[in-house]
Design a protein around this nucleic acid. Sequence first.
DNA 1: TGGCGTCATACCCCTGCGGTATCGACCCGC
DNA 2: GCGGGTCGATACCGCAGGGGTATGACGCCA
Lengths: 281, 281
Amino acid sequence: METRELRYFVAVAEESHVGRAAERLGIAQPPLSRAIAQLERRLGAQLFTRTPQGMTLTSAGETLLREGRAALAAVEAAERRTRRAVAAAGRAPVVLTAKAGASSELMAKLLDAYAAEPGAVDVDVVLSPPGHQALMLRDGRADVAILHRPFDDLSGFDVEQLLVEEQVLILPAGHPLSSATSLTVEEASSVPDLPLPRWPHLDGSYPDGPGPELRDLTQVLQLVRLGRTAIMLPDSARANLRDGLAVVPLSDAPQVTTVIAWPPHSTSPGVAGLVRTATRL
Amino acid sequence: METRELRYFVAVAEESHVGRAAERLGIAQPPLSRAIAQLERRLGAQLFTRTPQGMTLTSAGETLLREGRAALAAVEAAERRTRRAVAAAGRAPVVLTAKAGASSELMAKLLDAYAAEPGAVDVDVVLSPPGHQALMLRDGRADVAILHRPFDDLSGFDVEQLLVEEQVLILPAGHPLSSATSLTVEEASSVPDLPLPRWPHLDGSYPDGPGPELRDLTQVLQLVRLGRTAIMLPDSARANLRDGLAVVPLSDAPQVTTVIAWPPHSTSPGVAGLVRTATRL
DNA sequence: TGGCGTCATACCCCTGCGGTATCGACCCGC
DNA sequence: GCGGGTCGATACCGCAGGGGTATGACGCCA
């Protein structure tokens, strides 16, 4: 199977529509139809069921979509890391990715400590939207990432645990619940005048619901202060809070674990150094 | 980058020789030379240094070899799992791979317990040479594997720990050391009349050394009985021992952990059932 | 220095990918 | 029930590029 075929397949699977997929790929519709038919013939598997409304995946197709995305990411990673290895000459900057606006204190400590190490290489910090860190690590755009259990998918990475925290609810100061000594997730989710905000999926779309659509943390804290929403955050978020906000511990929310993650078999000395420094914090 | 290019590159890297690689690939030498040159141009990276003796990898080339092999395994896995998904219809047999001759007691218990579960699917057991289990899991030839820390490379897999054991030295009954109550690895390795056996690498070649070349466990036990070698094994190997063999605990050998491993994001109900059963043993 | 081994280049052929035009099937509104 | 608007599939053509053979350039060794 060639990566071109996989890319074509993934495009059609994602669009559920040959015409749109062809447009996205920059080719005409007929060759794409033909390529998919040929792929199905070669695999001996029906990948789509054709309907008058477009194409829907069969279960074999779903397998190929899942596995094929991982395979494409691996190929892209190989290409990117090779490109970077050439620029490298051994002392290329390490690309570290983290969630914008999270773990800033920990990150600052880590970067300072690492920079003080003998032989430290430059660290490019790439702040990306929530959930994108793992993707960037998988496709080679980043060398190392700060991720959060249980939110990020850590499968396939080597990780070192850095921090375990309880979660708290941040709500407007003066709200009736703000004087509670502790709340459950159930209670926090069902306050009618404080709907929890909605975060975008990986593709940029938003789940349905009553809460505001949000992209970053400063936004949400402002809205909390205005009494429009409340939010569950790891305990370390307290450090960044200003006036107008109240904090209530959540008794039954899952603990949040902050980890540093890197692709298995990484040979970058920069990654090794960062990880070593991180585990000593 | 197309998988064809990657396959060509890996062949040349492994053979260090365009002609031999071309033969292995079933094409002529000139197109292969051209393909490599084109790949280097497109990546903007020198992958090989040309010598009159052949091609040797640059450091960028080593990066691409490592990453490229993983990528190719991922593509092959996608293809195999899709092929198997079509035959599937939901109740395809699960392929479990394990080291020939190891963990047989544990495996028997696992297979029996799983077969007794409601809704259990068939399990194809593939016994493969030491070290091949992880490869089979990576390229989709197997769905789940029994692996051993620290010998197997578990990176990139989800695992559940099944068993932790100390290691012991197996030597001929009556050997002077057989009456020792405990030995160090150092001591066990330096007995002049009992050189430790050599196991094949993944490519089938053997490391240099004085000990006998071996492929499987019954062979080695026979040679131990004949006083030609000794071997370090996990404690559970005692169960299979017959007369003529002595066992001495090793005080400083690393513990051996037996795990059940599967590819992340596996959706196979058979794998899930096996893992669930295994963790309850 | 000639012979042998390496990989690179030159040139040709033909497969197979992508393009345009068109078809067949289905859904919908009237 | 019939035309128009969706789909994806098919037919056909042109050409880029991958693969073939023949040969060259270069370093090593006897």
